[in-house]
Amino acid sequence: MKYRATVFDVDGVLLTFKSSWEFVHKSLGTSGSLDDMKKYFRGEISYEEWCRRDWERWKSAKKDLTREDVLRIMERVVDYVHPNAANSVNLVKRRGMAVGLLSAGLEASTAKVAELLGVHLWLANPCYECKPVVEPKNKALGLKKLLEKLDIGLKEVIYVGDSLIDVPAMLASGCSIGVRDPQIKKFSTVWIEDLSLFEEALLQCVNHPSSVKPQPDEEQHKYRYGEGEHFDWVGLLDLD
Rank of each mutant, 00 (worst) to 15 (best):
E44V: 10
G105V: 12
K26N: 00
S88V: 14
A86E: 15
R42S: 03
E107A: 10
L34V: 13
K62D: 04
V70Y: 13
K59G: 14
K38Y: 04
V24D: 07
H82C: 00
R94E: 13
R67G: 15
D9E: 11
V89P: 04
L101S: 05
D35T: 10
G43L: 05
K93D: 00
S19I: 08
I45M: 02
K26G: 06
V13R: 03
R67C: 15
K39A: 02
K18R: 14
R76K: 12
Y47N: 14
V89Q: 08
E107F: 07
V24N: 08
Y80M: 03
R53E: 14
R42I: 04
F23G: 03
F41H: 01
S103C: 05
I45Q: 05
W21G: 10
D64E: 09
N84R: 08
D64G: 08
G32C: 08
K39P: 02
C51Q: 11
T16H: 07
F17K: 02
F23E: 02
N90H: 11
K62P: 11
L65P: 07
N87W: 12
V10R: 09
L28E: 08
M74W: 01
D64A: 09
G100H: 03
E48G: 14
V99E: 05
V13D: 00
F23K: 11
S88N: 10
D11K: 09
D79H: 00
S33Y: 12
